[in-house]
């Protein structure tokens, strides 16, 4: 099997990796693949595709609203996989699915992972799947399907658990910047820097990307000092929802260039 695109990315770039989160089926039902192509074109290094859910517990108002609109548009997990079947013809950056456990379990974990494989998805993030349950029930299945499982750390995760989780997490760990839901904070404070520094000094087996509360170039650069880069979600969704004279294409280009400085 060829090398996972996530590993390749972290091998090629040690810093300032920009990963963008978008909600599948938002703003329009058929926008997802087009947005993936645009994000790749303008310099995003990885994209997390959010599977909309009726009850997104870990998300703030921006992603909640985009999820609700996507569901109203008719987005379903089955449809998303159909839309993604041809995506690898044009999109070559790593793609990660991010979603809550319930829709995944309704499809069935094995079928879900098979369809990820078919579509060329590299990894998944399921925030409400406990690491222990993943390890005992699903880890072998993930391995057999060649799908990475990416786990979360927070400022309140103790050192033992940080080591456990990072040893289970494939490709990278998701460093939640602050104990918060998504899109609630908008800067990186000193106590967060302390936590990032602590993680950095632990020399974990996998690199980290910082997410939650990264919304502009300044925060992106700060995050990149402590980790391999950052994940931007709510701020990007806000750009998609803007009502102004610029086209969707132009807004995406402007936002990505603004963050990456190119």
């Amino acid at each position: 099997m060829s090398i996972n695109r996530i590993n390749q990315l972290f091998r090629d770039r040690e810093t300032e990796i920009l990963s963008i989160y978008l909600t599948a089926g938002y703003p329009g039902l058929d926008d997802t693949v087009k947005l993936l192509e645009l994000l790749q074109e303008h310099g995003a290094h990885m994209v997390e595709i959010g599977i909309p859910f009726s009850d997104p517990l870990a998300d703030g108002p921006v992603i909640q609203e985009s999820s609700q609109i996507a569901l109203n548009n008719g987005m379903k997990l089955d449809l998303l996989f159909k839309q993604l079947l041809e995506v690898r013809r044009t999109v070559h950056i790593p793609l990660v699915l991010m979603g809550y456990l319930n829709p995944v379990l309704q499809m069935g974990m094995e079928k879900f992972l098979s369809r990820c494989s078919e579509a060329g998805i590299d990894g998944v993030i399921i925030p409400d799947l406990p690491p222990k349950e993943y390890e005992t029930r699903y880890r072998e299945l993930f391995k057999s399907k060649g799908i990475y499982n990416i786990l979360l750390l927070t400022p309140f995760t103790d050192d033992d658990r940080i080591r456990q989780i990072s040893s289970l997490s494939d490709g990278f760990v998701y460093l939640v910047a602050d104990s918060s839901t998504t899109g609630v904070r908008d800067s990186v404070g000193d106590h967060q820097k302390e936590y990032f520094q602590r993680i950095k000094e632990m020399n974990l087996p996998v690199p980290g990307l910082i997410g939650f509360g990264i919304s502009n170039r300044k925060a992106f650069l700060t995050a990149s000092k402590y980790a391999s880069g950052a994940i931007i979600g709510s701020a990007f969704i806000r750009v998609l929802s803007e009502k102004n004279t610029l086209s969707l294409e132009a807004r995406v280009e402007k936002f990505i260039r603004g963050i990456s400085g190119n």
């Binding site: 859910f53 009850d55 517990l57 809550y100 379990l105 409400d128």
Partner: peptide, 20 residues
Amino acid sequence: TPGIIHGSRTLLMQDDDGQI
């Protein structure tokens, strides 16, 4: 049918896409 709501695996009213 079995599913996850508010952090618990239990029986819940949901559609075939797992939306509550």
